[in-house]
Write a protein that binds this DNA or RNA. Structure first.
Lengths: 355, 355
DNA sequence: CTGTTAGCGCCTTCAC
DNA sequence: GTGAAGGCGCTAACAG
């Protein structure tokens, strides 16, 4: 077979991509004119412009984002750092961010930190090296050091859900206080007086800290003794272990569980069912997220819904505005959560658990 | 406050990143020597090398991936195209791919196509412009045109799960035939004779095509009349609608449902329960994925497990090997699925459904 | 063993 | 309205 029109020499690679110079050469004009015609930043004789567009098309020309990035010193790339997008419905936020980024020709890079600090560091190194323009940090456990690192490198940062006290950056989140308070009120009105808060990592997660504080405040306000708390990561397995621990402690009595997320709530339910408890008759459980799981007929989890899509969109917009220079002072946008009452909460049986 | 040591002029931006020239200038040596010292590709006097490393560190130098990419003509970036990573446990594959890419300093870009062809095209344009080096295509509905486009642009492509007939590319998948056959055998041995296959888009999804063919073959082999099939997308909502349609058809009789994925299976269960059927007494349901949902005590879904993590890893390795030139001819790697029997399958009640 | 030079593809002054 | 030249930051070829 005859070699293709656009052949090349480099290492036997079959294909070299056409450049603006190629177009220019073919038309006998200057590269800068091609640039002007394609970008539309300068006026070019319509007839010439037309010919340029045509040959660009004919050559299947695509601009090189790398070259442009090097020249303009901006990559039009943003990144999202998330601890584990499997364990909640953070996917909605991802979707929202992509929906905002795509129309503005921004690439989105997603980094999964898995609660692993070394992995966080690796990712951030890569992001810095690639000269990412902005980062949305959703990873609840991302260490402040790393955020500061990003800011030192003058990479714009927006915090989504998680909030760091000693880092000043844009923030989009939910009113955790109100969410916990509404769940607590719900349980209280049903008659529950012994409620435990299950899960989360208060040392690293600002969200858990807030929820826990709201929980303890709410309990104190109602004049009950402080309730137990067990720290876990946000996975099913770990929530399950924690719940078993709670259930096997003979000193512990409780009629309701407030879980840090839906996954943990489901784990708690599993553990309770396994030990012969009925939900909600013997134990009420409230989750947090309103993930797809929660609405299943076989699950029917009472939970707190946060508008993840809207939050993701807000975070993306904030970031993009900042990258376009449309914004200045750090902002905070707080969304309201909503209690969704389903089937896993009911008045407590005032006797001991019936098997 | 006095201006920082590394100050600049461009547009009042606070910070200009140090380059190799900066290091070289500071030490009174040539940039290329800095390059050689940092990359280690050429020998540099240990003492000088040491000083270079130190000043690089002092200046907080980080190499520019963009400049390097422009020079080397490779970006060390790969992309993953997925239709909707919410609806199955494809997250495991994502995790695996990241686990393989990170140690080799490859960036991973994830593209969510949402079964939307225009969105696919947008994404691919961006990927081409960014000069992504390789793409893993997991999006079951990605139109062949787009894969061919990638190949024309000489971007290496690996297909994960979905397989296109008239595109020759590396492929990693699961033996759908064996999976369906094992599910069918399970139901058959329980005594089911009227089984329906629920969900999937045979026009666009090669996976659904294979499953459907395996299903029809299996039914035919056992000498039963062909079973109904309803096409859906892979979401809960659509699966639910389809199941209601099936249930409301008076001409239709069936005692078991084989669903295209877990989400659809759960939707089918919901619809059945809603109409007073009991699972598994009145209706057996088999899913596909073995997602976290399936193992919940309140769900206990019988399902077919595919090793998503391993598959993702295999796909990533294949791609990276190809990018490193370690591989040549297109390969296919087929994994074996595994039937996980849980609580949603049982012998059929041979009478009409008991309410 | 180190320095000089050139160029990856694009954009942007500055000339004409 | 268009052309020519330079440089973004890096690496590879060629000198010395």
């Amino acid at each position: 077979m005859a070699p293709d029109s656009v052949s090349t020499n480099t290492r036997g690679r079959p294909h070299r991509r056409p450049t603006m110079s190629d177009i220019a050469k073919q038309l006998g004009i200057a590269p800068s004119t091609v640039s002007n015609a394609l970008s539309g930043r300068r006026f070019v004789e319509p007839e010439l412009r037309q010919r340029i567009l045509e040959t660009a098309d004919a050559l299947d020309y695509r601009p090189s984002g790398i070259a442009r990035a090097l020249r303009l010193q901006r990559t039009s790339t943003i990144a999202l750092m998330v601890a584990d997008f499997g364990s909640s419905n953070s996917l909605l936020s991802v979707r929202a961010i992509e929906d905002e980024a795509l129309p503005e020709n921004y690439q989105l890079i997603i980094c999964n930190t898995s609660f692993d600090e070394e992995r966080e560091a690796r990712h951030i190194d890569l992001l810095v090296d690639q000269r990412v323009n902005g980062v949305i940090v959703m990873s609840s456990s991302l260490h402040d050091v790393h955020i500061k690192r990003l800011q030192q490198e003058s990479i714009h940062t927006v915090q989504l859900s998680r909030r760091s006290m000693d880092v000043s950056a844009d923030f989009v989140g939910v009113n955790n206080f109100a969410g916990i308070e509404s769940a607590l009120t719900h349980l209280w009105e049903l008659g529950h007086r012994e409620i435990v808060f299950l899960g989360g990592q208060p040392e690293t997660s600002s969200v858990t800290q807030e929820k826990l504080r709201a929980f303890n405040d709410g309990i104190a306000k109602r004049g009950t003794s402080p309730a137990p708390f067990i720290a876990t990561d946000f996975s099913f397995e770990d929530g399950y272990r924690a719940m078993v621990e709670l259930l096997e402690d003979p000193d512990r009595r409780f009629t309701a569980v407030l879980a840090v997320n839906d996954m943990t709530a489901l784990a708690a339910i599993d553990a309770a069912l396994e030990r012969g408890l009925r939900v909600p008759q013997d134990l009420s459980v409230v989750g947090w997220d309103d993930s797809v799981l929660a609405s299943l007929r076989t699950v029917q989890l009472t939970t707190v819904r946060q508008p993840m899509y809207e939050m993701g969109r807000a975070a993306a917009r904030l970031l993009l505005q900042r990258l376009n220079g449309t914004r200045d002072e750090p902002t905070a946008q707080i969304f309201d959560p909503e209690l969704i009452v389903r089937g896993t909460t009911a008045p407590p049986a005032h006797s001991a658990p019936t098997a």
